[in-house]
Design a protein around this nucleic acid. Structure first.
Lengths: 256, 256
DNA sequence: CGTACGCTTGACTTGGTTCAATCCTGGTGG
DNA sequence: CCACCAGGATTGAACCAAGTCAAGCGTACG
């Protein structure tokens, strides 16, 4: 037991991820203390659930390696993917509201996850200003990302949703030190479709369209973004129609 | 100055809202201390912005009376309404991530708003366990609500989106002590449409459909929900098709 | 008074879904 | 070792829910 804790301390202090995760802003002694909050590393296989909706909440998690998705089951029994998680990200915040998890988290790859029991984490949030601020910052970031996603689902067409998704994945891979233009997707087309509020056929067709136009290259789950700026352009293009219309109106009223 | 602070203390302790807002779980001395964190009450008129995207973040807000909407502006210049706020709700959490607000908040009615400067609030979060937990709970609740909205935009059709919206509004009005079946909407049809990822014409048509079927009664922004259970039913009905299909498959494979 | 805006309604169009067929790949069992 | 099968992915054709366009009504407000 003791040795495993010691090992965890070492792993937290030497962890390459610590410049991204909740521990990012912690210095010397605080980081050591944080390491002692980490209870253990769980190893999970693809398809395993870290938790499901209705599970009692007792700890937060940081994804250490691998990838995961979170999803809700609608009243009519359909799965809606609400997010993908990459190393360094905080998982399980949904349980803070009433100590029961509101959604499900399932691994997409073999992953290791750091478990942070809430009582200990809470104590450290109270006493470490740096950790508290980092913690709130990560939660707020999650909130902002979801808002962005509301915009994606509310305003963008299928092509733009896929463009947005690819750019987002690219950027997150880059943040973790990977290539910005070449990476592997860890989720299925079905997951992508659900996440983007589309059906799998539409996702497939949009990928083909991008390939035919030479914007990306795709081989199964491997993606190569050839013209990033082209993808960005498409996101702004919803304006054209509505702007053109607004201009038309302006012209009409000024000529009248 | 002093007298105004005193007045605020009184108002926090006697505020009818305190059984809903951030101060809910605070007892005697802590509630008094919380009252001293509240800097002032700002009064805003319909159309006024509490803050807009890009504004520097320095305080959180609790809506005291009135109503507000939050929205994002997409890259192509369109407005996407991401939420509606009612009394007691915490506003401005988005600024915690990098001290700049990510979205805009605009009043829908003449409203009063309690301002909680972040440095003072942060100190109290660190020291009051009750406040800290209530704070995290409210943030997590916001996150869960947004996830639910992702499901709405990703999986529900126009009719179901409106049903969901009406039930949600009804429930929130009831929580604040109003009628569950009769209330006034504070937002325009345009805001509702944007929020639900629809166009205003579709919202108008769905309202008409519900009225023709005797499920609701609407007069301008006043709503009377006649058959709540009917609205609920519709939310589960997406299943029919997919469940029917799943059953068909099961029959096929068992007969084969 | 008029005009601009919120809202409604009808006719038409279309982007994305649905349905159906096929291909590919990895895993399982004979 | 190969045959077989299930599940992921792709593709084409037909369809429809929601968007677009256009017109009109009521009313709040300068």
């Amino acid at each position: 037991m003791t040795s495993s804790v010691a090992q965890l301390k070492r792993s937290c202090e030497q962890c390459a991820l610590s410049c991204f995760c909740l521990a990012r802003d912690l210095l010397g002694s605080e980081r050591t203390r944080f390491a002692s909050v980490v209870k253990r590393r769980r190893i999970l296989k693809p398809g395993d659930n870290l938790f499901i909706a209705g599970d009692r909440f007792h700890a937060l998690y940081i994804l250490h390696t691998g990838a995961a998705k979170s999803y809700l089951i609608s009243e009519s029994g359909e799965q809606q993917v609400t997010g993908f998680h990459m190393p360094g990200e905080l998982i399980g915040i949904d349980g803070l509201s009433d100590h029961v998890h509101a959604y499900c988290v399932e691994m997409l790859e073999t992953s290791s996850v750091c478990e942070l029991p809430m009582p200990e984490l809470d104590r450290m949030i109270a006493t470490s200003r740096a950790l508290r601020h980092r913690f709130l910052s990560l939660i707020a970031k999650a909130l902002i990302d979801e808002q962005q996603m509301l915009l994606t689902l509310g305003k963008l067409n299928a092509e733009q949703r896929l463009a947005q998704f690819l750019l987002n994945m690219s950027q997150r891979h880059a943040t973790l030190g990977g290539s910005e233009s070449e990476f592997n997707l860890s989720m299925s087309r079905y997951d992508i479709a659900s996440y983007l509020g589309l059906v799998v056929e539409t996702v497939s067709r949009m990928i083909r369209r991008f390939q035919e136009e030479g914007v990306i290259e795709v081989e199964k789950r491997w993606v190569h973004i050839i013209k990033e700026e082209n993808l960005r352009q498409r996101l702004a293009e919803a304006a054209e129609r509505s702007l053109a219309q607004a201009n038309k109106k302006r012209v009409m009223s000024s000529s009248a």
